[in-house]
Amino acid sequence: MAKPRRSRRTLTTLIVLILVSVTIISIDESGRTRGVTSGVKSVANDVFSPLRNGMNDVLRPIGDFFAGAVHYGAVVQEDHNLQRQVGQLRQQANERPYMQRQLRQLLALEHLPFLGSVPTVMAETQAQGSSNFASTIEIDKGRAEGVTLGLPVVGSGGLIGQVVAASHHTATVRLITDGQSKVGVSFGSPANQATVDGQGPNDPMNAEFIAPATPIRKGQVMYTNGLAGGEYPAGIPVAYVTSFKTLTGASQMTVSVRPMANLDELTYVDVVQWQPTP
């Protein structure tokens, strides 16, 4: 008799766990109660982040070892690239005035022109791609430093994404390559409007709603359009065109674009403290 009773208990446990999980998902998905789950996640991140950061310092070398072993070919290639760069730099070292001029240009670039006078918060990336199903990064600034939900994040040459979760001292940024990301852009003169859709990590993005015969060229840069009600200020470089075609009978062009920002090199990013005008 003990065996059927145990089976019943096991089944009951499973049903209870499924019901609790579904309830939590419902609460998280519902717009009215989402604040509750966001709050819980925020607290969990506040507790977990210091632990992760501490352990990161200890465990990172192990991860780097495995990453280096797995990507041995890429490491060798990078080594070759670095050696080539060293050679170039040696040559440039003899051209001091030229280098000084370049330095001045780099310093000017530090204040990225597209940010204008909007204040920014510099943040360091703590983790990249914490889920296989979402393109996100974790940064080391949160609500305490003025990083709140919805703020645009730039760096490495263009728009990176948007803050989708903020705890006390950390925040999650959804990258523009994420499947849920949509950015309103403009390009060309006169300005044409489009929407750049993320298609998932490592996949090229699509520019949607471009009418057939719209003048467009390979390499053309698309900027945030800053339309009223939009989620980004105008003029941030978002992506450049890699290919385009118009299929017969299609109501819009098929345009593939790549991010302007190098999303593989996001050690430091800037959170733009810009709120959309209602």
């Binding site: 096991t10 499973l14 766990l17 499924i18 609790v20 999980s21 579904v22 309830t23 939590i24 998902i25 609460i27 998280d28 998905e29 789950t37 819980v40 996640k41 969990a44 991140n45 977990f48 914490s130 889920s131 199903f133 979402a134 996100t136 989708v164 979760a165 999650t172 959804r174």
Partner: peptide, 19 residues
């Protein structure tokens, strides 16, 4: 709790897989 994906989804999949 630390992932940007829906809360409860991993828990649901986890209990089904474990069972």
């Amino acid at each position: 709790l630390i992932l940007p994906t829906p809360l409860g989804l991993s828990a649901l999949v986890g209990c089904l897989v474990g069972f």
